[in-house]
């Protein structure tokens, strides 16, 4: 790798230096949705409030969370860039590979977060009571 190439690469992926924590966004949405769902349900059942507002609220929250995760997942998919360069693994010690690897990890985390949000929401949407 020539010095010029190296310089180019560093410039292109400079943002990467601070973006490791970006891969936590998907699980973070899942965690917020989880805490809000469980907390609201516990509160509603403890206070004996009607269930319909809870179910509507959880339904809306779930749609928002899923939309957010889809958006993050789409960005991660683009960052992984596996269709263009046909590279399933990105294990070279270059900034570009690090960039794509982080996209790959964030994409997989988005999938698990999506499934987690759906499974957390299902009981409240399907249960008819606090019992």
């Amino acid at each position: 790798m020539t010095d010029i190439n190296k310089h180019e690469e560093q410039k292109r992926f400079r943002a990467e230096a601070t973006s490791l924590w970006k891969i936590t966004f998907g699980p973070l949405v899942w965690a917020v949705h989880f805490v809000a769902t469980y907390g609201l349900t516990a509160l509603t059942c403890a206070k004996g409030w009607p269930l319909d507002p809870l179910r509507i609220g959880v339904g809306v929250g779930t749609v928002l969370a899923l939309a957010g995760i889809l958006w993050l997942g789409w960005g991660a998919w683009a960052q992984w860039d596996t269709l263009r360069d046909r590279e399933w693994e990105n294990d070279a010690p270059t900034d570009e590979d690090r960039h794509q690897f982080l996209g790959h990890a964030a994409f997989l985390l988005s999938i698990i977060s999506f499934i987690g949000v759906v499974y957390v929401a299902l009981p409240i949407l399907l249960f008819g009571s606090c019992q």
């Binding site: 499974y119 299902l122 399907l126 249960f127």
Partner: peptide, 23 residues
């Protein structure tokens, strides 16, 4: 990945309403 997620999701949707009917 895909098949188990769909299968478990279907079983979850089928079985969850049974839980509240027990109470």
């Amino acid at each position: 990945v895909i098949f188990p997620v769909l299968l478990l999701g279907a079983l979850l949707i089928y079985s969850l309403p049974l839980m509240s009917s027990q109470r």
